[in-house]
């Protein structure tokens, strides 16, 4: 049984993960809740971690695997109201996850669990030549700009600048974040990094980002992008395979 202070914040987590995956197996143990899975095409990976400390209350015995249909969970979470607390309660007898919104009253959905097991995927240990921290909404806006021009985007780090660019058949777009840019928090690089990525996936991954959030990007040349940010007490990490010329 786990209680989160803001159901509405957690809704964003579920929305974002549901953009990429159809189902997920949550692992709940005394450290908190984690989950990791690749999308069916193996282009993207989502890793979710909600540390025990993010919960207002958290009770567990042993370790539980909770298989969830994300489309159904998303629909339920969309009913969260702004002051609702969220209680997630595993009913092992009925094989259901109770999703409870608590405010002046108490609304309970019982979500049927899926018979899936947790994936054994470990994050690959990749050495990245460049790490960029920037304001999440600035990154999201640059991706939306690029989306007007093409279906892919090039993310580059060169000369202590982070660049988002794309070329269409007729039109081009580029956004530069250098040390003078208030959106750029930090940039560490050993040499250049340049990789191209599918924009649809990237836009799905940044869906939950809002003003004030900070994203951390790990980049290389023709390497997967690693993207991290925190949302509603959850740490989200995404990997996205590059497009290669």
């Amino acid at each position: 049984r786990a209680t989160l202070e803001s159901a509405k914040e957690f809704k964003k987590v579920v929305d974002t993960v549901a953009q990429i995956l159809d189902e997920i197996c949550l692992i709940a143990n005394e450290d908190g809740i984690t989950a990791r899975a690749m999308d069916p095409s193996h282009v993207a990976l989502v890793s979710l971690e909600i540390p025990r400390l993010s919960f207002e209350d958290y009770e567990i015995e042993g370790e539980k695997e909770i298989g969830i249909d994300l489309e159904a969970f998303k629909k339920i979470m969309n009913r969260a109201k702004s002051k609702d607390k969220l209680i997630l309660e595993l009913d092992e007898e009925k094989n259901k996850l109770n999703v409870i919104f608590e405010n002046s009253g108490r609304r309970k959905f019982s979500l049927a669990l899926l018979d899936i097991s947790a994936s054994e995927i470990k994050m690959p240990e990749i050495e990245y030549p460049a790490v960029v921290m920037l304001k999440g909404d600035a990154f999201k806006e640059a991706l939306k700009d690029a989306d007007l021009i093409s279906d892919y985007v090039i993310l580059k780090v060169e000369d202590n600048k982070f660049i988002v660019e794309t070329k269409g058949e007729l039109n081009d777009f580029s956004a530069e974040f250098d040390e003078d840019s208030s959106a750029l928090i930090s940039i560490e690089s050993q040499g250049h990094a340049k990789s191209a990525f599918n924009l649809e996936y990237l836009l799905d991954m940044v869906k939950g980002i809002k003003a004030g959030d900070i994203v951390k990007l790990y980049l290389g040349t023709d390497m997967p992008l690693k993207l991290e940010y925190s949302l509603g007490g959850a740490n989200l990490t995404f990997l996205l395979a590059p497009r290669i010329e």
């Binding site: 690749m38 193996h42 282009v43 690959p124 191209a196 997967p224 497009r243 290669i244």
Partner: peptide
Amino acid sequence: KPKQMTLDVFFK
């Protein structure tokens, strides 16, 4: 034409 890679290549 650019080719979309999968993550499998990078998991080795």
